[in-house]
Design a protein around this nucleic acid. Structure first.
Length: 285
DNA sequence: CACCCGTGGAT
DNA sequence: TATCCAAGGGT
């Protein structure tokens, strides 16, 4: 795995010695459910504008949401701003190094806490994401049916494979993730060029494709779509937007419901009755 | 555990 | 065109 990583890993800016813990943390949050190629330009601009947590904490949350662009799941931007604020207030501006402390930050869960601890600080902790789950399922269990979400059992299983040296263990973890991203992919895996081909239980079992996953929520007409339209309007506007404009995002009842939920989530604020803006944005002249 | 939360490219 | 999928987290 280490040789595979040395020879085939992608050259990503948040990897390597020049990346700061803050840069690693930002990358991990952006990469939650979002492809690498879409994250790359936003990550670069983000770190250029806010090179330290305190730089982001000094801005309004609305600026973070606007800079988030079209990465999706904009609550991540709000939470990343919250994490920067907590890092500044509680940790003196330095990203904490332990899983326990990282888990206290908003938007940092079981996966991201370990990813930051391992990749930014060289901690010897198991890092289990969707790629690792898929590799474990196929190579170790011999079936194409990864568990729906990472469990403590998955982390315990990965712990058994971690090299003793912490820095090497971290490199092993990112190597498994890279294998899942480049070879052991969900669709059309490239088994012919997989370094684990000779020891893969799934391969020996005939590479039987897993059963269809549970149906995903339909997209057209959902609240997520309408919320996305409302937020897109607010991102594009330099100042407040009228309720009338925002409610054009969908059917009246649904639009009102979505606007309310966005307010409840803290992604939108009401400037004055009938006017809305991203949180903390400059008031309407 | 079930459900919700965006976006856009690939097939 | 419809479906799947991409380094999950919070409630």
């Amino acid at each position: 795995m280490l040789e595979f990583y040395d020879r085939h890993a992608r050259d990503l800016p948040w990897r390597g010695p020049s990346a700061t813990p803050w840069g690693v943390l930002v990358s991990e949050v952006m990469l939650q459910q979002t492809p690498v190629n879409r994250v790359l330009p936003v990550w670069t601009q983000w770190l250029d504008r806010w090179p330290r947590p305190a730089d982001l904490a000094a801005e309004s949350a609305g600026e973070a949401i606007r800079a988030w662009g079209r990465l999706g799941y904009p609550r991540r931007a709000l939470r990343l701003h919250g994490a920067a604020t907590a890092i500044t207030a509680v940790h003196g501006g330095a990203v904490p190094a332990t899983v326990e402390e990282l888990l206290q930050l908003p938007g940092i869960g079981e996966y991201t806490a370990r990813a930051v601890a391992a990749f930014a600080f060289g901690a010897r902790v198991p890092v289990v994401d969707t790629n690792v789950r898929r590799v474990l399922s196929r190579v170790v269990r011999g079936v194409d049916e990864p568990r729906a979400s990472a469990t403590a059992a998955d982390r315990l299983e990965m712990s058994a494979y971690l090299p003793e040296d912490p820095a090497t263990a971290a490199r092993f973890s990112v190597a498994v993730m890279e294998l899942g991203a480049l070879r052991c992919t969900a669709v059309r895996p490239d088994c012919e060029r997989c370094p684990l081909l000779g020891r893969c239980r799934w391969q020996r079992a005939g590479s039987v494709a897993g059963v269809a996953k549970r149906p995903v929520q339909t997209w057209h007409g959902t609240d997520r779509q309408v919320r996305g339209r409302i937020l897109a309007q607010l991102r594009a506007a330099s100042g407040p937007v009228t309720e009338l404009d925002l409610l054009a995002a969908g059917p009246p009842d649904q639009s009102r419901r979505c606007l309310s939920s966005l307010l409840a989530d803290g992604l939108v604020e009401s400037d004055q009755p009938g006017w809305y803006r991203l949180p903390g944005a400059p008031a309407r002249p």
